[in-house]
């Protein structure tokens, strides 16, 4: 029996709360107007916001670890991680490393040595929708770092490659390449890259310039990489500080690092929209910590967060913490994918 006619504004609200992307894609077949709602960029944005506001605490391991089952899916619950038996399958053929995540879209590379050295073949993939797109860079330069960025205003996805003295931008919407000078000589930090995307639209990296840590970000409106001022205290303590890393805390950029002299982890949060840092916390008495390689995560417990690492005990209570970046990337229920391009569904 047909029930009351629910107006389309309310249908839109209901659908934005349907976290399962699989169900949403299926319901495109309900009618033309449902297809229109579910395909609308604004709906996709609202849906992601709704998923982000009730976090699933699911994270993807960056590496398949040579299993053919896919990327391991990990659920963080309290100070315990559940490696479990979950995997995200149907990976684009031949790709086994996640380099970057933005709005649920992943930038993938292949593990093979040859591809790593040349670093020219990449795939964009949304595991929720199973859409994939392949990308071959034009440039043969040594890649220092890379990332994806979503431009909310134009609806374009941009892929950024940072080379030693230059950087290249690829626009998914307009299918163009652009190369610009960095104005300095930079080196990368780590195999899978340092970058993190905050709020879906600004991408940050940690680079090394003349043996000093440098924060940069990509301004997608003018296609430029700019320097982000470090927290003041960090510039002074520079010689004692090692192992920088970034995280997304409640939608803001967080920088944390290890102070060798004090044996402590220090943490700052950048205020939204402006370039000022606020010191959040210092956690003392941590021996021998390499933030690049140690599994460190921040888990929220009863509105407070506990800093936890499997090799250490829960160290100290923190103020609210959200998402961790390092060996894992967030797994989001997202309908995002670069628009204006043909997508290919993967054979199971």
């Amino acid at each position: 029996m047909a029930t009351s006619n629910i107006p389309s504004e309310i249908i839109e609200i209901i659908l934005s709360k349907l976290s399962s992307v699989k169900s949403l894609l299926r319901f495109k077949a309900v009618s033309k107007s449902w297809n229109t709602i579910i395909s609308d960029p604004l709906f996709i944005q609202n849906h992601l916001q709704s998923s982000n506001s009730s976090p699933n605490n699911l994270f993807l391991s960056r590496n398949t670890n040579s299993t053919d089952r896919g990327f391991p899916l990990i659920k963080f619950e309290g100070p315990k991680t559940k490696p479990g038996e979950m995997f995200v399958e149907n990976i684009p053929n031949g790709y086994s490393v996640i380099l970057f995540e933005c709005n649920g879209v992943l930038l993938l590379t292949s593990l093979s040595d040859r591809d790593r050295r040349n670093n020219r073949k990449y795939a964009l993939w949304n595991p929720s929708t199973r859409w994939e797109r392949h990308l071959e860079t034009r440039y043969k330069d040594h890649v220092v770092d890379r990332g994806i960025c979503y431009d909310k205003i134009t609806g374009d996805f941009k892929v950024v490659f940072i080379y030693t003295t230059e950087y290249a931008i690829y626009s998914c919407k307009y299918n163009y390449w652009r190369k610009k000078k960095l104005g300095k000589k930079c080196y990368g930090a780590g195999d899978t890259g340092s970058g993190i995307c905050i709020d879906g639209d600004t991408t940050y990296w940690i680079l090394e310039e003349s043996a000093k840590m440098q924060l940069v970000y990509f301004d997608s409106r003018i296609d430029e990489i700019k320097v982000l001022q470090k927290p003041e205290q960090l510039s002074e303590d520079d010689k004692y500080v090692s192992s920088y890393n970034m995280a997304c805390l409640r939608g803001s950029l967080c920088l944390y690092c290890y102070n060798k002299d004090e044996k402590s982890v220090q943490m700052w949060i950048k205020e939204k929209g402006i370039h000022t840092w606020e010191k959040v916390i210092t956690i003392g008495n941590i021996e021998n910590l390499y933030l690049w390689s140690t599994q460190l995560c921040f888990v929220e417990v009863e509105n407070k967060a506990t800093n936890y690492s499997p090799t250490e005990k829960a160290v100290e209570k923190l103020v609210g913490i959200d998402i961790y970046r390092g060996r894992y990337v967030p797994y989001r229920n997202s309908l995002y994918f670069p628009t204006g391009v043909k997508t290919k569904t993967i054979k199971a």
Binding site: S4, I10, K17, F27
Partner: peptide
């Protein structure tokens, strides 16, 4: 609306059309 979304999750296209009174166009 969150509850309705939860109920819909595993449902078929036909179920949705019937329950929401939607004509397949």
């Amino acid at each position: 609306s969150a509850k309705i979304a939860q109920v819909m999750e595993k449902k078929s296209v036909g179920w949705v059309r019937r329950k929401f009174g939607i004509e397949n166009d």
